[in-house]
């Protein structure tokens, strides 16, 4: 299998998902390299969320394999996949409403950091490296001013940033973002684009699933297109734009922006 760019961090091999008799995903294959920024697009019902759920272990696959960092992870539970550094967000954000923003991040960071000793755990101390890492993420995503508030009190855009921050707090090697720009205004969206580019530059690979064509086409190095559960095109944004099948399936229907 051809692995363009750097050595493949995530490699999806002929992944299929069925809901009863319906093929939601049919033998989809693609790769994401270390520190690469890859887009996954497709019209509504194309199987994008199904694909994410299958990759991250929230949906059983009917065939094919998922490799992460060289190892087959088909049999791993969602938290084990996250533990390897393969972290996702949710379209519905799914924040921990009982925790403050900082704690939302902390709980994700804590899950992957070294286990605290019994004495530390009893006294409620957290490891020093975790604290440092958390501050970094809070600065990066811009959560400093709202760190002590709860998700329920925040604006939609802020909640999106918390979801992203929580994923980054888990120290991902690859972060899989499910519609991170949905409901954001243009300014917020372009800030997100800048942030994602910076992330990739720091070595964190990003698999971006979104409706916002300008975001995906403007930030991603490579783009894969799903339609009716099939991967219909892969390539650079320019190549994908030029693909007649994609035009018909997606851009033609949704209007090329």
């Amino acid at each position: 299998m051809a692995t363009p760019g750097v050595g493949a961090l995530l490699s999806v091999e002929e992944l299929s998902v069925r809901y009863g008799g319906l093929a939601a995903l049919s033998e989809v294959s693609f790769t994401v390299g270390e520190g690469e920024l890859v887009g996954l697009i497709g019209p509504n019902g194309a199987g994008k969320t199904t694909c994410i759920d299958a990759l991250t272990g929230f949906q059983a696959s009917a065939g094919g394999h998922v490799r992460f960092a060289g190892a087959v992870i088909d049999d791993l539970a969602p938290h084990e996949r996250a533990g390897l550094g393969f972290v996702r967000t949710f379209q519905s954000l799914d924040l921990f409403d009982d925790l403050t923003v900082a704690q939302n991040l902390e709980v994700a960071a804590g899950a992957r950091s070294a286990r605290p000793g019994l004495a530390d755990r009893f006294r409620g101390r957290r490891p020093a490296d975790t604290a440092e890492h958390l501050e970094e993420v809070i600065d990066l995503v811009g959560l400093g001013s709202i760190a002590r508030r709860r998700p329920g009190e925040l604006s939609h855009g802020e909640r999106h940033r918390v979801a992203l921050g929580r994923a980054l707090a888990a120290r991902p090697r690859l972060v899989l973002l499910d519609e991170p720009a949905s409901g954001l205004d243009p300014a917020e969206t372009s800030a997100l684009g800048v942030l994602l580019t910076a992330l990739a530059a720091r070595g964190t690979a990003v698999l971006l699933v979104d409706h916002d064509m300008s975001l995906v086409m403007g930030t991603c190095e490579r783009v894969h297109v799903l339609d009716h559960g099939l991967l219909i095109a892969s390539g650079t944004p320019a190549e994908v734009r030029a693909d007649p099948g994609v035009r018909e399936a997606y851009l033609g229907a949704g209007g090329a922006r």
């Binding site: 991250t56 929230f58 539970a77 969602p78 938290h79 996250a82 533990g83 972290v87 996702r88 967000t89 949710f90 799914d94 924040l95 921990f96 409403d97 009982d98 925790l99 704690q103 902390e106 709980v107 994700a108 804590g110 899950a111 992957r112 605290p116 755990r121 409620g124 957290r126 929580r166 994923a167 888990a170």
Partner: peptide
């Protein structure tokens, strides 16, 4: 923290907790 945060994370949203590596 950290045990209690995990408790509350699981209580709030099991799916998201698993995604966060818990």
């Amino acid at each position: 923290r950290p045990t209690g945060l995990r408790w509350l994370a699981v209580r709030a949203n099991e799916r998201a907790a698993a995604a966060a590596g818990i």
